[in-house]
Simulated assay, not measured.
Amino acid sequence: MTIWNLGSINLDLIYGMDRLPGRGETVAATSKAEFLGGKGTNMSVAAARAAARVCHIGAVGPDGRWAKDRLLEYGVDTRHIAQIDSPTGHAIVAVEVAGENQIIIFSGANRAIPPELVSNALAEAQTGDILILQNETNAQVETAQMGKELGLRVCYAAAPFDADAVKAVLPFLDFLILNAVEAQQLQTALGTAISDLPVRDIIVTKGADGAEWICTETGSNQAFPARKVQAVDTTGAGDTFTGYVLAGLDRGMPMAQAISQAMLAASIMVTRHGTADVIPDLKDIQDLML
């Protein structure tokens, strides 16, 4: 099977900070590094490193060929990544010593993906494949609807969070992943409990407090504790988690096993500085399980 990812592609500029700046404040960075990133890219790389077949649908600018080449090196199918006139997306990430971050995103080509690119890509999809989307591209609603009509398992990672964006794709979703803050914001916006949403599987991630899986079909909830580590950078941890969950499901794992594997991957990710380039591979996870 295949995981189809309508996802962002960014150059991540990551600055180490003793502390994050407040409003109107200037704080000197202690380090600078450049990585391949974007929520979509991170998820594609994570899923590929977890042994899934991943096809990325997206766009880069004239300055972005390097990103497409890097994704290919990491095992991601890049045939449906277009080069367009808009500049490649980028993110400016400030990371303090405790691992927390602030992120500024310039969408660029990520919000100008040609609609025909999506339809051409999904013409190759098969019933039962997985489709993942995040709120960093255009064409989310049309793609989710197309995926539903084609019999794909449609998943949405609700970040960067926008209640209207979630509401727009909600009728087409089989699977929703969001963090605890986003879950509370969505409940407030919709006036309904997360467990009452018309989505079969919902995962709420809680950082160091683990994650919760809600299966609305059975009415069951299951908690998953986080592995205790010393975090140095939380950037990309949620994306790594998502990619590993989807890869596990694609490989036939039960949801609980896929989540447990993803929790280990995320726990490794937060001990590393960087984004897509430092996502752990399946051997890293297996070594922890020995």
Rank of each mutant, 00 (worst) to 15 (best):
L170C: 02
V204H: 09
L152I: 05
N179W: 09
Q185W: 04
L190Q: 06
A208L: 02
V204I: 15
G151Q: 12
N179Y: 11
T205F: 09
E149I: 11
V154T: 09
P171M: 07
D164L: 09
Q187Y: 04
V204D: 05
A168R: 04
R153M: 11
S195M: 06
G191A: 12
A193G: 09
A183L: 00
I177T: 13
G151Y: 14
V169K: 07
G207A: 13
P171I: 06
L178P: 01
D162S: 10
P160Q: 15
Y156E: 02
R200A: 13
S195N: 10
E182G: 14
Q184N: 13
A165G: 07
D196Q: 14
I203M: 05
Q187W: 03
D164E: 13
P160M: 14
D164P: 03
I202V: 15
F161H: 10
A180R: 03
F175I: 07
P171R: 06
L170K: 00
A208Y: 00
L152T: 08
I203V: 14
L190I: 11
K206R: 14
A180M: 04
K206Y: 01
A159E: 04
L178K: 00
V169Q: 05
V169N: 05
Y156T: 01
F161R: 06
T192W: 05
V169I: 07
A193S: 13
G151H: 09
T188Y: 14
L178A: 08
F172Y: 15
A157H: 15
A189M: 05
A158E: 12
I194Q: 12
L173S: 03
L170Q: 08
Q187E: 15
A163H: 00
Y156R: 02
K148L: 12
F175M: 12
K148T: 10
D162W: 08
L197R: 10
D174S: 08
G147I: 04
I203P: 05
L190Y: 05
L173T: 00
A157V: 12
I177C: 00
D174F: 05
F161N: 09
K167E: 03
G147E: 13
G207C: 12
P198A: 11
E182Y: 02
L186I: 07
T188H: 15
T192V: 05
A159M: 05
L176M: 11
A208K: 06
A168Q: 12
V154M: 08
S195A: 13
K167I: 12
R153T: 14
L186M: 08
E182P: 06
D201C: 07
L186H: 06
R200G: 07
L170E: 05
D164F: 02
Q185A: 13
K167L: 08
T192A: 08
A158W: 01
D174H: 13
L152W: 01
I177L: 03
L173I: 00
D201W: 07
E182D: 15
D162H: 09
I177N: 01
A208F: 00
A165N: 02
A208W: 00
R153I: 13
I203F: 03
C155V: 02
A159C: 10
I203Q: 04
L186T: 10
I202Y: 07
A163N: 02
R153G: 04
P171F: 12
G207D: 10
I202C: 09
